Simulated scan of single mutants.
Amino acid sequence: MKKWISSIITIVLMAGAGYWAYEKYKPQPEAPIEIPPPITFDVTQETMTQTILVKGKSVYTEQMDVFAPYTSSIKQWHVKNGDQVKKGDILFTLDTSALQTELDQMQSDLDKAKLDVEMNQISIDQAGMTETLGVTEEERKKAFADRESKRLANELSKKALVLKEKEIRKKQDVMSKSTVYAASAGVFQMNEGDSKTRAVTEGQLLGSITNTGKMKFLTIVGEEEMFRLKTGMPVQVRMSAQKELKFKGTVSKVSKFARKSSDTDLKQASQFDVVIDLKPDARMYGGVSLEGDIETMRKDKVTAVSSLAIMRDQPEPYVLLDKGNGQTEQVNVKTGMESGDKTEIVSGLKPGDVVVIP
């Protein structure tokens, strides 16, 4: 009896172990494959633009040079290097002592010459009253010649007086320029970095006044871009070092002549200078590296969709229009301009449609 019970227990244990091993190692059924949902894109109505990216530098456009009006020495500087000046501010004054001495001498000579002319005229007038015509024809000719000689000499003296007066006025005009004023507002920069008094010559460059409120963005474009540009096009500008700083500009000049470097290397594509006027902004400085997007085309209320949604494996571009409930319809479309990741849809879709990529 005990042997029989032992056999039953053994059989039960073996069956339990077998069932456990089966459950542990039996093959698992494959998990169902989940089909990802299709990628959808909304058809929208928006403003689309095309731009050209350019790079260059900012430069000051209004700079006036300051020259010495005549040879002298600087008597006094009224501004320092780097000062902000207004139009009409005194920049410096020149010494006038040498000019004044010349002017006094010229005036003295003029007064003496005037007196001589007056005396000569009196002498001529008196001689005319007491002059004897002479008896013979020869004596009369000689008297006439003497009288005309004195008259002509006095006339030449009068003309010399006019020239002397002109020279004096010219010298006075020069001396009136001894005080040099700022012709425009801006930052004054000396040609030499000091304000010492020193001798200068007529026409010598002493400094310049730069209007920091007027700047331009100078850049270069290639042949393809040049034909797309026109004056008046708006430009979104940013600093290369601080791209978060935004500025506005307008294309003011597109050169019709290639740069000289392009002429010497025939393998190099021609390049053209472009000038962009910048709107005044206190944050902008001259000599800064800039980037700009020149807007060459703009369309408002454009029907647009992501360029990824447009299929081009057939003769005509098409999209898969979402009809709902997982159903799609192939629709041929006519495309227009492209901007970024969007393409203009001229016909075939309307705003509010949804297209899919299977």
Score class of each variant (00 low, 15 high):
86 K>A: 15
86 K>W: 06
87 K>I: 07
87 K>Y: 03
87 K>F: 05
88 G>I: 05
88 G>A: 04
88 G>T: 06
89 D>N: 15
89 D>P: 07
90 I>W: 04
91 L>V: 04
91 L>Y: 10
93 T>K: 03
94 L>G: 05
96 T>D: 05
96 T>Q: 12
98 A>C: 00
99 L>F: 08
101 T>I: 11
101 T>N: 12
102 E>P: 00
102 E>I: 02
102 E>L: 10
103 L>K: 07
104 D>A: 12
104 D>C: 01
105 Q>K: 15
105 Q>L: 13
105 Q>T: 13
106 M>D: 12
106 M>Q: 14
107 Q>G: 01
107 Q>W: 00
108 S>A: 13
109 D>I: 00
109 D>F: 01
109 D>Q: 10
110 L>K: 04
110 L>Q: 09
110 L>P: 01
111 D>A: 15
112 K>A: 06
112 K>I: 14
112 K>T: 13
112 K>F: 11
114 K>C: 02
114 K>E: 13
115 L>W: 08
115 L>F: 04
115 L>H: 07
115 L>I: 04
116 D>L: 11
118 E>G: 01
119 M>W: 08
119 M>N: 14
121 Q>G: 10
121 Q>E: 13
122 I>R: 14
123 S>P: 01
124 I>Y: 06
124 I>D: 07
125 D>H: 12
125 D>K: 13
126 Q>F: 06
127 A>N: 12
127 A>P: 02
128 G>Y: 08
128 G>M: 07
129 M>Q: 15
130 T>W: 02
131 E>H: 13
131 E>D: 14
133 L>W: 02
133 L>R: 03
133 L>P: 01
135 V>G: 04
135 V>P: 00
136 T>K: 03
136 T>V: 04
136 T>R: 03
136 T>H: 03
138 E>Y: 09
139 E>S: 10
140 R>A: 09
140 R>P: 01
140 R>E: 03
141 K>H: 08
141 K>S: 08
142 K>F: 02
143 A>K: 08
143 A>T: 08
143 A>V: 12
144 F>N: 12
144 F>H: 10
146 D>W: 01
146 D>P: 00
146 D>R: 11
147 R>V: 00
147 R>K: 15
148 E>T: 07
148 E>I: 08
150 K>D: 12
151 R>T: 10
151 R>E: 09
153 A>E: 13
154 N>T: 15
154 N>G: 05
155 E>K: 12
158 K>F: 05
158 K>G: 07
159 K>G: 03
159 K>S: 05
160 A>Q: 08
161 L>G: 13
161 L>R: 00
161 L>A: 06
162 V>I: 09
163 L>G: 13
163 L>Y: 11
164 K>R: 14
165 E>C: 02
165 E>Q: 15
166 K>Y: 14
168 I>M: 05
171 K>E: 12
172 Q>R: 07
172 Q>H: 02
172 Q>G: 03
172 Q>E: 15
173 D>G: 14
173 D>A: 14
175 M>L: 09
175 M>S: 07
175 M>F: 02
175 M>I: 07
175 M>E: 14
176 S>Y: 09
177 K>V: 00
178 S>F: 07
178 S>I: 06
178 S>N: 13
179 T>I: 13
179 T>H: 09
180 V>W: 10
180 V>N: 06
180 V>G: 11
181 Y>M: 05
181 Y>D: 00
182 A>L: 03
183 A>N: 09
184 S>F: 03
